[in-house]
Design a protein around this nucleic acid. Structure first.
Lengths: 242, 242
DNA sequence: CGAATAGTGTCTATAAGACATTATACT
DNA sequence: AGTATAATGTCTTATAGACACTATTCG
């Protein structure tokens, strides 16, 4: 490789977000309808180019989160998911996408972003099954993001990021059930999460107004890794995420 | 954002490799001595810029593996580790590095690469402790790579990638001990790995010439995930990797 | 009261870890 | 024989999962 005559190729960099939340106990991902070419009118992940040459990747992800989903990045779990750089993935040229995974508590309504034509929470089931088609290689990115979320639920406290500040153990269990697509025994789950040090902190109050006995409220504890970890039940027995 | 007046910044992309192997039962990482500025003369990870605008990221990683380490990419475990893009990480300008983790069986000698001044297997211990300093943010990349390798040893068959095609269970155990920096009970380990479906396939032969009873030979089975997974002993009791 | 949900207790199967014991090579 | 390493067996304890049972609310 001759350094005098050769110079490295310049590429464009986008940051794309897989933003997951729970709505009516179903796992959903935020999609926007593209307002510009390419793929105008198609559904895609929120995201966009780096703003300028000095913008940090994570900062760019936080900015997109704010601009396209109206979410405050500081409160959210946000972590890098992977980088997608096949030569043909974007018709505009060589565009490499750094994907981030974000987890949000149940949000009221489809947030209208500033850039996108429309924004909508789409059921993950419909995206994975291909019922909803996505632009670029975003289907792959969503799949990878969900797989990462499932893994992280096993051995990190990520699940609490789906909950509001105070939550009941039943709500936490519904997070696991929705993301994993399984049913969990409420009683065993109850004891299991309680005995993980630093996972949950009792808040000393109860949530009334439901149908049965009031449930104790908890908030997220200081731990970030789960020890012991929660084991996901055997998959593919009866139901997957569908 | 006005599409007429604004255009996204162009950046340079490098692919860097964290190549791990075992030498004398110690976990080692391949480093090269940089022959050009910046950081001329410093130790760094093998890697380099994309060759041209149409080169796939994984292909670029495989090419670097061949050029700088003289390793055949096809036989090796190679997976994306993360992308590092802080604005100040490279004095040449905005350079984003996509890092890959590669695992190689015990290799005879420091492989002299074609591009680098020198190439050397360096003990991971010395790199993590800071005894050996690395260019750019490569210390961070190595740390992340080792952490990923440790995690993957728990629930994937990655450990066999450190071994030659045929290996004994004692050799496999030494992989775990070196990467995790722990001691494992040989007898319990023996039974545990045997009962994981698809992990090991008996080859029907034995390796003689050692000191004690000949050990049966195995090769890697078809499984990629470990079920049940191997649990890493409590860390920080007596020894870490140091 | 009855229905519904929260929380506790208990039993069983399985897995993890400590460690004794047997097997088979080499010198 | 003596030593070293491989492979197997056994026991104890911890954990996972099934599920009976009690507790507390609402209508």
């Amino acid at each position: 490789m001759n350094e005098d005559t050769w110079s490295p190729p310049e590429v464009l960099v986008t940051v794309d977000l897989v933003i997951l939340t729970l709505r009516q106990q179903k796992l959903c991902v935020l999609l926007i309808e593209r307002g510009v070419d390419p793929y105008r009118g198609a559904w895609a992940l929120p995201g966009g180019f780096l703003n300028n040459v000095d913008e940090d990747l994570l900062k760019a992800a936080q900015r997109e989160l704010r601009e396209e989903a109206d979410l405050e990045a500081e409160k959210l779990h946000l972590e890098q998911l992977g980088t997608y750089g096949s030569p043909g993935r974007d018709p505009r040229g060589r565009v490499i996408s750094v994907a981030y995974l974000a987890i949000a508590p149940n949000l009221p309504e489809p947030v209208a972003g500033t850039d996108a034509a429309r924004a909508e929470w789409e059921s993950v089931e419909d995206v994975l099954s291909g019922k909803v088609e996505l632009a670029f290689d975003h289907h792959l990115i969503v799949s990878d993001g969900i797989e990462l979320a499932r893994k992280k639920l096993e051995n990190s406290t990520l699940a609490t990021a789906f909950c509001r500040e105070e939550f009941t153990i039943a709500e936490l269990r519904q997070v696991y059930e929705a993301v994993w697509g399984t049913r969990l025994d409420p009683r065993n789950f109850y004891r299991k999460v309680q005995k993980v040090p630093g996972f949950l902190e009792p808040v000393g109050q109860e949530r009334r107004g439901g149908k049965g006995r009031p449930a104790r409220l908890f908030r997220a504890g200081p731990a970030t890794v789960l020890h012991p970890s929660l084991s996901r039940p055997e998959v593919a027995k009866s139901k997957g995420v569908r």
